[in-house]
Amino acid sequence: MEPLNDLKNSWNQEDFEMNGTRSVNKSSFRDIILSVANRERNKVIQYFWAAFAYQIILYSLFCFAFFRNIGNQAILLAVLAGLCANIPFTWALLKRFKIMYRQSLSKSISGYSIKANIELYYTRLSAFFRFKKFADGILLPVNALIAVFILFGIYTVGGLFQHLISGSILFAGIWLACGIAVWLENKNNFRKPLRKIALLLQEFEQPEHQVDVAVVD
């Protein structure tokens, strides 16, 4: 193993130089921890802002419809149905995200191999993604339908049932727009990372095949 032995020699030399010149003191250590913790928190907040923008629009519509149409039973029922459909899913999604986030590397690393940790990470991420897809699959059409029902109930004479064609078009439009947004979000936050991790795991299994995953970004 000549190239690796050459590398080992230069490696050991470098190691000596590094160890002799670097150390971490308490103050700089705390600065680093704080900086990375903030960065991590910002990433989570960034993810949730995107998800919450949609939720805020939805709940604002429900509140607006509720206070504007206190006497209209049909709209109140639609608002109630919207709340009943969304609140449990939002709560469950937040809870699962929190669990997944907290059960990150720190809880599992000690007793397991690197491959086992990667598998665990993959399992957690894919379980969360499965639940999210399930929630999105139900909530997107339900919310689009309720939103259309409320909008037509408030702003048109006769409500949705008198304007079925335009209502259907609006419903399809909302569903499509939200569907594309969710698809893009899932692609960036789940499908791509999961695919990369799957490739990594595949590489662990198959030493004889070259798998091109050299880029970590």
């Binding site: 700089s28 600065d31 680093i32 704080l34 900086s35 960065r39 990150s104 590397l105 690393i109 000690s110 191999s113 690197i114 940790n117 990667i118 990470y121 991790i197 990594l200 970590v216 970004d217």
Partner: peptide, 23 residues
């Protein structure tokens, strides 16, 4: 183990922020 795990899976390229130089 921690380091390699981080390097392999958990590390993503992070945009550098202007205030990073203090730290």
């Amino acid at each position: 183990k921690i380091g390699l795990n981080t390097a392999i899976v958990h590390f993503r390229k992070i945009k550098r922020r202007p205030d990073r130089s203090d730290v």
